[in-house]
Computed example of a mutant assay.
Amino acid sequence: MNQNATEEQITTLLRQGLSNAAIVRELRCDKNRVSRIRRKHGIPNVPLQPLTLEEKWTTNTRPVDGGHLEWTGERKSISGTPAMRYREKPYTAAAIAFRIRHGRDPKGYAFAECGLHHCVAPDHVDDEPGRARTREQLRYLNGGRERKPYCPHGHDQAVHGRYQEDGRAYCEKCKRQRARSARQEVAS
Results as ranks from 00 to 15, higher is better:
C174K: 03
P44R: 03
K31E: 12
C151Y: 03
K31C: 12
T59V: 08
Y163I: 02
A95C: 07
A97I: 11
A21F: 12
K40D: 04
R180A: 15
D156E: 09
L116R: 15
E146S: 11
W71T: 05
R180M: 12
P50S: 10
P82L: 07
V24R: 07
V125P: 02
W57V: 00
V64A: 11
W57R: 00
H155E: 04
R145K: 13
E185W: 11
T92L: 09
A21E: 10
G115Y: 01
I96A: 02
R133L: 13
E8K: 14
I10C: 02
V46L: 05
Y150V: 14
E113P: 02
V186D: 06
G115F: 05
H160S: 14
A5C: 05
P152C: 06
L116G: 00
R183H: 15
Q137R: 14
G115K: 07
Y163P: 00
H41L: 12
I23N: 00
K175I: 01
R36F: 06
F98P: 01
Q3R: 14
R133Y: 04
G108Q: 10
V24K: 06
T52S: 13
V46E: 01
D126S: 11
R178T: 13
G73H: 05
K173Q: 15
G144K: 03
K175A: 13
C29T: 15
E88K: 11
G67P: 08
A5V: 09
K89T: 15
E55Y: 00
R33Q: 06
R131V: 07
R139W: 02
R85N: 08
V24A: 03
Q9F: 06
R139N: 12
R133N: 10
D166E: 08
A132R: 14
L18Y: 14
E165I: 13
P82F: 04
T6L: 05
H102D: 09
L48E: 10
M84K: 03
Y170Q: 03
H102R: 14
Q137S: 12
R178D: 12
A22S: 13
Y163K: 01
Y109W: 10
P122N: 07
S181M: 11
G167D: 05
D126F: 05
A112C: 08
L27P: 07
G67W: 05
Q16F: 04
M1H: 09
L27R: 08
E128V: 13
R38Q: 08
E55C: 02
T61Q: 02
R168Q: 11
T81A: 14
G144N: 04
Q9P: 05
Y109N: 13
R33C: 02
L14P: 02
G80I: 10
H41E: 10
R135Q: 04
A97L: 06
S188V: 15
E185G: 15
K173E: 13
E88C: 04
E55I: 00
H160R: 12
L51F: 04
E113H: 09
I43P: 03
S188F: 10
Y150E: 08
E146W: 03
Q49I: 00
T58Q: 14
W57P: 00
G80D: 09
F98Q: 01
C29I: 07
H160F: 15
I37E: 02
F98R: 00
D65T: 15
P106T: 07
R139K: 08
Q3F: 11
E172Q: 13
V125Q: 01
Q164F: 02
T81F: 07
G108E: 08
R135S: 02
P122G: 05
